[in-house]
Design a protein around this nucleic acid. Structure first.
Lengths: 196, 196
DNA sequence: CGTCTATTTGAATGTACTCAAAAGCGGTGG
DNA sequence: CCACCGCTTTTGAGTACATTCAAATAGACG
């Protein structure tokens, strides 16, 4: 059924009672996001957190030279929002847009608050979700700070093989923090290595 | 009294009932960490999360060439652990050591679990703590990926003025991801700029 | 098919690193 | 109290990694 994907995502970390599951799903809003459409733009306040039922989205920001810097690439079974904006209720720095036709379930900030206040099991669920997000970002920092671009790319390939097929090279370049030209050069070098 | 610092840290995000505060503090273990001593070494499992009552610590890892890469600099009123190791109960990649004589309060992993299971208010507290940590790391990624080293340094100075006095240049260099020689060169350039 | 964007290629440039050595600084022991 | 040791910071030269800019080629989409 419609909510299977999100309920099994939640079930990874916590066990819901029927009434908890019902309260949860009754707060969700289904939304279709065609490719290239925005879930959030910089300057707006992120009033919801979204679970990706299908498709793929990117979160990015524009730097001083209006260059797109990708912060996060997310496919189905991931959660996405500008956590800073969502949490502090301040204007977002990020844009979030669909790189494939996507379907998401959204939880509004005030519903989120109510849900967590009423059912501690959701405090636990989101605590674990945040904890994992923190661990993931910290790992990413470690890798970005200390590894050359080529290692970061190889790492990306190993870590997110499902993404490689679905996002453009330009976007991968932005995610790992190199220019698209340099990524292209690295790919040439890597394929030459593998031939010999 | 002894627990004032940690209780007022908790009180930033949640309000504790007397019995909750008591249950919490009764689980804490006080520990003195002299300068240069370790709270955790890579390969060990982080069995506790620590609140820094006084002093300053660093979390770092050694890369392939045994170079120290600082992940986190933390002073009093901060929490510190290798979250990956603590959360997954797997061997840590990080070292955590004192850069000043420090005092910490530690919560053991099993006590942490019990506390959160018994009092949802602590689920909430740690959910917010993790959420903020996630936001902070994501901001750091944005800055590392898109800004030149000089901007990262200026940023560090603005963001953590209290740290500048207390940690060496070498450690700041490591934290912002440049060689100590290059940080020295940047400082010279910056001070020349400010003179004119 | 034509247009728009992504990718590749190459040259010139810049940012940051490595290595080596000198200078500064703090602690320790004679 | 000063001399020495170890570690941090500075300086400079040479180098490597990655960027920018420009242009050609390839792909994707209406």
């Amino acid at each position: 059924m419609k909510y299977d994907s999100i309920l099994s995502n939640v079930a990874r970390y916590v066990t819901l009672q029927p009434q908890e599951a019902h309260a949860f799903t009754s707060l969700l809003r289904h939304r279709e996001v065609p490719r290239k459409e925005f879930l959030l733009k910089a300057g707006q306040t992120a009033r919801q957190i979204s679970f990706i039922h299908s498709g793929a989205l990117k979160a990015y920001y524009l730097d001083a030279s209006s260059v797109e810097n990708i912060i996060m690439l997310a496919v189905d079974d991931w959660w996405i929002t500008d956590m800073y904006s969502f949490s502090m209720a301040k204007p977002a720095m990020q844009y979030i847009s669909a790189i494939e036709d996507s379907e998401v379930f959204q939880l509004q900030r005030n519903d989120f608050d109510k849900l967590l206040a009423q059912f501690p099991v959701f405090e636990k669920f989101f605590r674990i979700l945040m904890q994992n997000a923190y661990i993931r970002e910290q790992l990413r920092i470690i890798q970005n700070l200390s590894m050359p671009a080529e290692d970061r790319y190889v790492n990306f390939l190993n870590k997110y093989p499902q993404l490689v097929q679905r996002v453009s090279q330009k976007q991968i370049a932005s995610y790992i923090g190199v220019s698209p030209e340099f990524l292209s050069a690295m790919r040439r070098r890597l394929s030459e290595k593998n031939k010999t």
